[in-house]
Structures are given as C-alpha cells and as structure tokens.
Design a protein around this nucleic acid. Structure first.
Lengths: 217, 217
DNA sequence: GCCGAACCGTAACGTACGGTACGGCTCTTG
DNA sequence: CAAGAGCCGTACCGTACGTTACGGTTCGGC
C-alpha cells in the first residue's frame, strides 16, 4: 500500500488514463456524495479495482488525488498591476467576486467541499486542508496583491491586507456557501451572480475606497 | 420502526433520561465526528441499543433528535424595540454578532454542521434543513425586526431587510465557518470575537447607517 | 510468434456496523 | 410479595463495502 501511494504522490501529474478515472470520480462524487464505493468507481471508469488500488493506494488516496486533480484544473489569469485606476480595479474585484461565486456554487465544488468537510471531521484532515489551501487561501494570495496595488495607487485604504481580504470575502460569499453545503436549493443565475459581484464590490469600495481620490495622478 | 420514530417526534420534548442520552451523543459527535456508532452511543450513555432504537427509531432518528435537542437549548432573549437609538442599536448588533460568532465557532456547532453537511449530500436532506432552519434562518428572523426597527427610527437605510441581513451575516461570519468546517485551527478568543463583532457592526453601519441622523428626535 | 507487463472483470475475504433478540435486573403498582 | 413494565448488557444476524486475489485479454518489445 505505501509504495503504491507514492506512485502518484510525487513526480508529474496523473496520466491521461488516470485523469479519465479522476474525472469519473468527480462525476460520481457529484451524483452520489461521499457514499461512492470503489466498485462504483471501477465500473464507471471502466477499470479494475486492482488498478485503482495500484494507482491510488486506497480510498483516501483516490479522493485526495481527485481533489488535487480538480484543484489543478482551475487556471488563474494573473492580474496586471500596471495602469491601475478605479475602473480597472473595480472590474478586477468584480471579476474575482463573480468567479468565486461561480466556483463555490458549482455542483463539483459543493460535492468536493462536502467530502472535505466530512474528512476534516475524522483524523484524516488532508482533504480539508487541501480544499482550504487551494480555495480560500489561494484566493487570498491572488487577491491581496490587487488590493495592495490599489492601495499603492491611492485607490484603497486599509491597514491589513488580510483583514481587508476577509471583509471582501464575507461581502461576496455571505451565506451562500454554508447554505449550499447544507442542501439549500439556491438558484444562482448568471445575472444574479454578476449583480452580487457588483454589489459586493461597491460595498467593499464604500468601506475601503480612498476618500481623497487617487494619490498620484 | 415507524411507530417507534413517532415515540419522540410529536408531543413534548425528550425526557430527562433521553436528554442525557442526547447529550452523550453530542459529546461523542464532537469527539468522533459522524463515524460514531450506535454501539458507542449505547456504551457512552450507559443504555442498551434496544432502548436507542425504541426511542429514536434508527440512526438517523437519533441524529435528528440530537440536532433538535441542541437547537432547543439555545435560548434567545428577545430584543426590545422601544426607545431605539444609535447606541442601543449598535449594542444589539454587536450582541448578535458576537453571539453568532460564539455559536458557529463552538465545537458542538462545528460537529453538528459537519454531520448535517454530509447528510445533506445523501438523499436524507433532513439534518441540513434543520440546521439551516434553526441556524442561519432563525438568526435572520430574529435580526430582521431589529433592522426594521432601526429603519423606522431613521437610523438605518436599506430597501430589502433580507439583503441587509445577508450583508451583516457576511461581515460577521466572513470565512470563519467554512474554515472551521474544513478543519482549520482557528483560535477565537473572547476578546477577538468581541472585536470582530464591533468591527462588523461598524462596517454594517457604514454601509447602511442613515446619513441624515435620526428621523424623529 | 513469444514473453512479460499492464490492465480488465469478477469472485472472494474480512470486518465493521446497523439493527434485532433475549436473559436478567430494578422498580413501580396493586 | 407477585406481576409486569422498562431497561441494561450482550450476543447475534445480515449486509455493505474496502481490500485482495486471480484468470483472461491486450499490447509493446525482441
């Protein structure tokens, strides 16, 4: 088992065939939640259970690989910090907000967060840590430079970028994630998401926007 | 089974002995997460499995009764809407915020939310619905009259009380709940909670406080 | 064409756990 | 004190599922 786990742990990502398997797990996870069985995975992915164990070690390894696989799929366009004005800053923030809302309201994200939450409840805290790291914290790492650039440009005012980010996070996510995780039917239309993103951004600017206008102009 | 479930469903709450059992479940839930077994419950509560099934029907019934029992324990002092001024409104909001932060960061709440989340992932959506109803939505029902009273008194400005509440909710909770659910060690001291409550309240007032001062004075 | 490696499909194993049955103890009621 | 109800402790049953084992098939390299 141990030597099997390492087969995927280090080195490059999964092979094409392995990616197919992980995508099957993802789909099954959305349908079945965390009660998916290894047998069901093998059947859905048209592979043998022996192969699953050989590749991923055990059930936890399979789930971990799946979470990482999904996380690796979200590509992030870096934000250019040049020529920042209020318009482009607003656009960036709205973009972040709507992207984030779309992510956390997707079936895949909800399913993945569910298994990560239940996993975090047991001794195995891995999945929760990964989801947190690739979700909430990755977002913070991406957004904070934008906020700091906004401060540099005299558009924003705040002491602590982390705290400012958490405020933005709260204004964007509000009760959406917990409601979805708890099974609330929450229909988010594209228009609704864009509207929420705009509202959250305006609220954030109302709280942290510079009162004095741009510093250097 | 069906007739057994009804033994607790309707009528008054659980007996003293049953409350002891449910408290044992609560403690076990905090320690073990959702992998607690009926045998473990019986042992911890010093009762027989036969009794568990007689009282609660099945495992789900036991968990449901536990969630409801915990929910019934949070008593809510109603807020008086008389003589509302900015000071008392601020105090009320801070009170709500710190209470809520204390609730969602408690071991019990985290454990309960975890089982509700995993339950919401399966066909049984009951637990998730209950937690949502007794948590997020109950808070909204309690807070909205306060917000509306604040608007009546000319202290707050907003169009939709539900939207205003969700903003407040986001400012208070931010990333706390999802981080705790995903297993992040997040030490919240009493002082920190009070500080967060005050900050969230000030931010909310900055967004929705009346610009023109109290209406009638 | 032959060999070994990789993999598929399936059968088999072991175990953990939900749920049930039962013997014995205690306590109430008449 | 007798009878019965309620409950504890434990043994038991059935099943679902993680994990392993194995025979058969495909495929790349010699």
């Amino acid at each position: 088992m141990l030597q099997a786990v390492t087969e995927m742990m280090e080195g490059e990502g999964p092979t094409a065939r392995q990616q197919d398997v992980l995508d099957a797990v993802l789909r099954l996870l959305v349908e079945e939640g965390d009660r998916l069985t290894m047998t069901a995975v093998a059947r859905r992915a048209s592979c043998s259970k022996e192969t699953l164990y050989k590749w991923f070690g055990d059930r936890d390894g399979l789930l971990t690989a799946t979470v990482q696989w999904q996380a690796s799929k979200v590509r992030v366009p870096p934000v250019d910090r040049k020529g920042l004005d209020l318009v482009s800053l607003t656009a960036s923030l709205e973009r972040f907000a709507s992207d984030w809302l779309r992510v956390i309201s997707s079936d895949t994200s909800v399913a993945l967060n569910r298994v990560a939450v239940v996993h975090a409840g047991s001794d195995k805290r891995d999945l929760g840590a990964i989801v947190l790291e690739r979700g909430r914290f990755a977002l913070g790492r991406r957004l904070k430079p934008v906020l700091e650039a906004g401060r540099e440009a005299g558009l924003l005012e705040f002491d602590d970028a982390e705290e400012a980010f958490r405020t933005f996070f709260g204004l964007v996510a509000r009760d959406v994630q917990i409601r979805l995780l708890l099974g609330d039917r929450l229909e988010l239309t594209d228009a609704g998401i864009d509207g929420d993103a705009a509202r959250a951004t305006q609220q954030f600017l109302a709280l942290h926007g510079a009162k004095t206008g741009p510093k250097a102009l």
